[in-house]
Write a protein that binds this DNA or RNA. Structure first.
Length: 205
DNA sequence: AGCACGATTAACT
DNA sequence: GTTAATCGTGCTC
C-alpha cells in the first residue's frame, strides 16, 4: 500500500487497509507491527515478516472452500477483524479478514520479528532460542497469547487488544514470494500458486 | 455416533 | 530427514 503522506509510524492501520484485494493486503502487511494487549495489560508484538493470502470459495486451499461453518464464520464478516482457528489438535492460527463483508478471505500471519514484551515472549516460548520464538503461525499465537478469545475481534476499534501499526516502509524489491506452506492435499493450481509473501529480517528498515 | 484429517511443531535419528 | 503429539471440525454412515 502506498502510505498517504500524513500517516505516521505508530498509527493504527485503518479498516480501509483490510478492505482491499487480499494479495495486496498480504504484501503490504510485511514490515508493519502487530501488537497484542492482554486483559492484564501485558503487551507483546513485532514486525510482520511473512504472510499468506487465502481467497474465497474458489481457492481450494482456503477454509472457505466448503462454505460457511461455525469455525470459519469470521471470514465472512467485515474486514479488519481477526479469524483465529484451531488445528492439529493443539495449535491456534491468526488471520486478518480482508475484502468486503460477505466475501470470505483472509491473510494468515506466519512470522514476525519480536520487538515488544520480549521477556513475556521468552517465557511463553519456554526459553527456546530467540529465532524460534515467532517463526511460525502457531508459534506467534503461543508467544503473543492469542487463542479462541481473539476470534472475530475488531482490529480497527479504538480500544482493540489486537491491532496493526504502520512502521517504516520496506523496499519493494525485498519482498519474496512462493507457494503457500502446508497445503499437502490441496489440488493445483491452488497448491502451488505463489500467494506467500515474505521478507528477511535484515531487510527491515 | 464414528472417523479421517489438518494453513504445525518439537523431538527424534 | 522422519514422525509422534493431540483434538476440534466436518463429512459419512
Amino acid at each position: 500500500m502506498k502510505p498517504s503522506p500524513n500517516v505516521r509510524h505508530g498509527d493504527r492501520v485503518p479498516r480501509s487497509f483490510f478492505s482491499r484485494d487480499t494479495l495486496e493486503v498480504a504484501r503490504s502487511l510485511l514490515g508493519k507491527r502487530l501488537i497484542c494487549v492482554q486483559d492484564n495489560g501485558t503487551r507483546t508484538g513485532g514486525r510482520i515478516l511473512e504472510a499468506e493470502a487465502y481467497v474465497g470459495t474458489i481457492d481450494l486451499g482456503c477454509h472457505a472452500r466448503s462454505g460457511k461453518t461455525q469455525r470459519n464464520g469470521s471470514m465472512w464478516g467485515p474486514p479488519g477483524h481477526a479469524y483465529v482457528y484451531f488445528t492439529y489438535g493443539m495449535h491456534w492460527m491468526l488471520n486478518f479478514v480482508t475484502e468486503a463483508e460477505g466475501r470470505p478471505a483472509a491473510v494468515l500471519i506466519r512470522s514476525i520479528q519480536p520487538e515488544e514484551g520480549e521477556r513475556v515472549i521468552r517465557r511463553r516460548r519456554k526459553d527456546r532460542p530467540r529465532r524460534e520464538w515467532t517463526n511460525g503461525p502457531a508459534k506467534i499465537c503461543r508467544a503473543l497469547g492469542i487463542g479462541k478469545a481473539f476470534d472475530g475481534i475488531d482490529l480497527c476499534s479504538a480500544d482493540s487488544r489486537l491491532f496493526v501499526e504502520f512502521a517504516a516502509d520496506i523496499s519493494a524489491h525485498a519482498v519474496q514470494t512462493g507457494p503457500r506452506v502446508g497445503l499437502f492435499t490441496v489440488p493445483e493450481p491452488w497448491k502451488s500458486i505463489p500467494w506467500r509473501f515474505h521478507i528477511k529480517p535484515e531487510d527491515l528498515p
